[in-house]
Design a protein around this nucleic acid. Structure first.
Lengths: 346, 346
DNA sequence: ATGAAAGCGCTAACAG
DNA sequence: CTGTTAGCGCTTTCAT
């Protein structure tokens, strides 16, 4: 009789049943070494393994091989609709390859990021996929020096050579500005995301650049940074924007750093008796779920988040198998989705 | 010089540095056994451990103790806004207690549920928190017989004694119906969630019961089941509802099985030229993020999802430490949030 | 082609 | 209070 804590059959159990040595069973069951054992034995071993519902103990294996077959995925906040698709995309390809994923939240706090990172490293994860990077991220810069593969997704770190998968922020913002310019807007505002995040910075830069490109001038009073990527911060910035402008100088269109900021902006518009899109057009960024159900449905830039996650995972896999030595940087195309929140100026 | 795969200092490294036996170091570092070692030695060991940045190898420890200090969390779809708060709530509690979480998606597919479950059990998780349960869930009924703690969250399984944390579905639906009844509605429809899920079933049952309670009759033509908890299925059911009724028998209010169904319903209303809430009131369920931004803002039942996750994790912890032997069933109170999608009938 | 044996890093039972 | 020892389940080198 097994002790109560018994977790299942071991290699030895299988060996006993077939009447061979545990080492042989190990070889027979491992596809890589299966060639060095008698096909007959292999079959018998496989049958016995199935009968006993043998499952290799990953801890024993990991202890021996010093690989855990786990990958840590670190996100700022799984509750932000942006990140679940990234996680899901990454998890799908990693699971397929036999890896299990650990998920950690940092709440955008760099101290918690370090804690999660250390916990995962303590857990012996084989690699790390990080979506919570800040532009100045010593924690990650340091982690990148370790011997453990690190892949960034969605956000980048300044001055570190780390493999990376992002959406094309510059291209996306250019589409947004072009769309507004083509509608005939000239006084276009930008409510930027936090400038300590690469997405916030890249989109803000792209905004200015695109404005020039389309022959429009950037009014400094019409470019504000939001403290966070939230509805509240977006509303606060939008309110400040209208406080600082009069009827003459007020924008007729606003390109927002992300969808939450756009939602906050629409709230403020409503409060102030301005109609969207008739009085002010608004463009979001990300195409979060259900922003097509808002009133008006939000025009936004669609980022293929699940793909981002999947690509990051593929890079991770290549890093893990040593196939890939170069530091890949992948920028995935984004897409303008025109809905009801944008229209020509009056 | 360390081999390239070196993951850090071992117990032996620390022991060598202090000049004691590895066993002593183990005792000195483990709070539970720390009492049996000379305080002086403890201090020296701790210092050495810190200097060498010693981190216990969880695989070695797990191999020995046959506990992995991991808990698997299984959700239908992390991409559904309902589940991230549950995961986050559970993770916070579990992480605090030194556990690490594995997250798995089932896509509401019972075969994938089994796969994930097996993968997690293969991973030697110490316990499982499952949010993807179906009413007839052989996989889980079977898993519950194992020696590994299992806690259900949000959804239950029929006829299995498994610890459980759910929102008060009966109470929530009663609030919804009462709200509509008090507004003066009498022809109230219910677009139910899938009846193979406990939430769908419980809310449908509560709908009928509450209707009787408030002296209203349930028109069988006004109760339809949605194939899934999605916008599309909700829209399909809503369309069917209006196809099957005429101006006389059409509902003036609809209690929906969840928010997605409510969103689909509102879409159909709009298509048919019916205004919400003037012509038809709509109540959702769950209070997903941003449903307060819809037009009209959705009246709904708020379920404390993060709390659900946290409670489930607390039960898990008690099960894991053996403190708790009873099969707890916790039903958490929900709350009616009245917004713009409900009004008196005309 | 297979058996034997060592050892991954840790804990725990037993000695001293 | 501390050292010794055995062994968790597996992989892998070395014999045979």
């Amino acid at each position: 009789m097994r002790p109560p804590g018994a977790r299942g059959a071991t290699l030895k159990d299988v060996a006993d049943r077939v009447g061979v040595h545990p080492g042989t069973v190990s070889r027979a069951l491992n596809p890589a070494t299966q060639g060095m054992v008698n096909p007959d034995t292999v079959r018998k071993v496989q049958r016995a393994a199935k009968e006993l519902a043998y499952r290799p103990n990953p801890m024993a294996r990991g202890l021996k091989t010093s690989r855990s077959m786990t990958v840590g995925i670190i996100v700022p906040d799984i509750t932000n609709p942006l990140f679940p698709p990234i996680v899901k995309g990454a998890e799908a390809v990693l699971t397929e390859a036999g890896y299990t994923c650990l998920i950690g939240n940092t709440d955008n706090d760099i101290d918690r990021e370090r804690d999660v990172l250390e916990a995962f490293i303590g857990r012996q994860v084989d690699g790390l996929i990080v979506a919570s990077a800040q532009l100045e991220d010593e924690v990650l810069r340091h982690a990148a020096d370790g011997d453990r593969p690190l892949v960034l997704v969605n956000r980048r770190v300044e001055g570190a050579r780390i493999p990376l998968v992002v959406g094309d922020d510059a291209g996306g913002m250019e589409m947004a500005v072009r769309h507004l310019a083509e509608l005939g807007h000239t006084r276009i505002a930008h409510l930027a995301g936090p400038q300590f995040l690469s997405t916030g910075r890249a989109r803000a830069r792209a905004f200015r650049q695109s404005m020039h490109e389309f022959g429009l001038t950037v009014d400094p009073n019409l470019v504000l940074e939001c403290a966070t990527y939230s509805v509240e911060a977006g509303a606060a910035a939008a309110a400040a924007l209208f406080e600082a402008t009069d009827a003459e100088s007020a924008p007729t269109a606003i390109a927002c750093g992300n969808d939450q900021i756009a939602i906050g902006t629409c709230d403020v518009l409503r409060e102030r008796g301005l109609r969207c899109p008739q009085d002010v057009s608004v463009v979001g960024y990300n195409d979060m779920p259900y922003v097509d159900k808002l009133a008006p449905p939000l025009t936004t830039i669609r980022v293929p988040h699940a793909l981002l996650g999947a690509e990051a995972a593929r890079i991770m896999l290549r890093l893990l198998t040593g196939e890939d030595t170069a530091t890949s940087v992948i920028s995935l195309p984004v897409e303008l989705v025109v809905r009801g929140s944008t229209a020509p100026p009056r």
